[in-house]
Every structure is written in structure tokens, then in C-alpha cells.
């Protein structure tokens, strides 16, 4: 299943992330995970949020350059070797990961690893075949993450 990540083009300078989160806060958008990639003077801010379409609309209206981007939100076991199982599989199949970040769903039980890969459909199929679960946007929206520090 394909999930949607919201990506925002931003200059790499103080205040840009704050400008984005201010809008998301005002819109009562819940952020599940975030990641920032930069290339010198500019970068891309990525979010997994509970309502990517509404978030994209609000950010676009504020004049930002926004794109909803397909990613795979892979459900992993939160234990040693959990991520390795996924990455070994992708490596064997020569799938390249362009960007990735993760968050814990339930400490010592479940984690989500978000990957942006070069062959999305092939990878989606591959994971299904190997019984690795992925979450779509709705599933991501429905989950109630428990941060491990809460335990």
C-alpha cells in the first residue's frame, strides 16, 4: 500500500521550518514523523501527517511549494534486526532508497519505516509477496502512536 508524504521545498535558513509548522499547528494537523534533507542552501522538508491533503492545501495557500509524494510506510517489528530484514530484501532486489526515516509506534513492538524508493510499484509488490505490511494514508491517519518515552 502506498502512503502519501507531504514535501515542502524550503531554503536552508532559520525560520523556514517554523513557518511550516506554524501553519500545520493552526490547521490542527497532527505530525506523525518528519525528516529534512538539505543540499547546501536549500532542502526539502518531509512530513507524514494525519491529513496530507488538508495540510498540502493550507501550505499551498500560504504560498509554499508543496508536493504530495508517494512513499512506502513499512510496518516493522521494533526489535534488533527489524529494519535489517527490510533493507536486505531491498538490496537483493536492487531497489534504491532515496530517502528514509522511521518512528516507533509501540515501544518494543511496532515501528514504521518510511522509504522513498526508485521503483515504487515493484517494491510495493515485493513487500506484499514477503508478507511485510505497509500502511496507507488512512491507516497512518488512524494510528495512535505511542512514543517510547511515555513508557
Amino acid at each position: 500500500m502506498i502512503a502519501q508524504q507531504i514535501s515542502i521545498f524550503a531554503e536552508n535558513k532559520p525560520g523556514r521550518l517554523a513557518a511550516v509548522t506554524r501553519i500545520l499547528a493552526a490547521e490542527k494537523i497532527n505530525i506523525r514523523a518528519t525528516n529534512i534533507t538539505t543540499a547546501d542552501t536549500f532542502g526539502v522538508i518531509n512530513f507524514i501527517v494525519d491529513d496530507p491533503r488538508r495540510a498540502a492545501k493550507a501550505l499551498t495557500q500560504a504560498g509554499m511549494t508543496v508536493q504530495l509524494r508517494d512513499v512506502l510506510a513499512v510496518l516493522l517489528e521494533d526489535k534488533p534486526g527489524g529494519l535489517d530484514r527490510l533493507t536486505q530484501l531491498l538490496a537483493r532486489e536492487a531497489v534504491n532508497i532515496n530517502n528514509a526515516y522511521g518512528f516507533v509506534l509501540e515501544g518494543s513492538k511496532k515501528a514504521v519505516f518510511v522509504v522513498d524508493v526508485d521503483q515504487m510499484d515493484k517494491t510495493d509488490e515485493l513487500l506484499r509477496k514477503h508478507g511485510i505490511q505497509t500502511l496507507d494514508t488512512e491507516a497512518l491517519s488512524a494510528i495512535e502512536p505511542f512514543h517510547y518515552l511515555n513508557y
Binding site: 543540499a39 518531509n46 508536493q67 504530495l68 509524494r69 532515496n98 522513498d116
Partner: peptide
């Protein structure tokens, strides 16, 4: 950058 051009991809921007 052209808004329409942006695909959420840093590699594309680079």
C-alpha cells in the same frame, strides 16, 4: 523554482 516542477525530491532539485 517553478512550483509545478517540484516533485518533493531533493535529487531532482540538485
Amino acid at each position: 523554482v517553478n512550483r509545478e516542477f517540484f516533485l518533493g525530491d531533493l535529487k531532482q532539485l540538485e
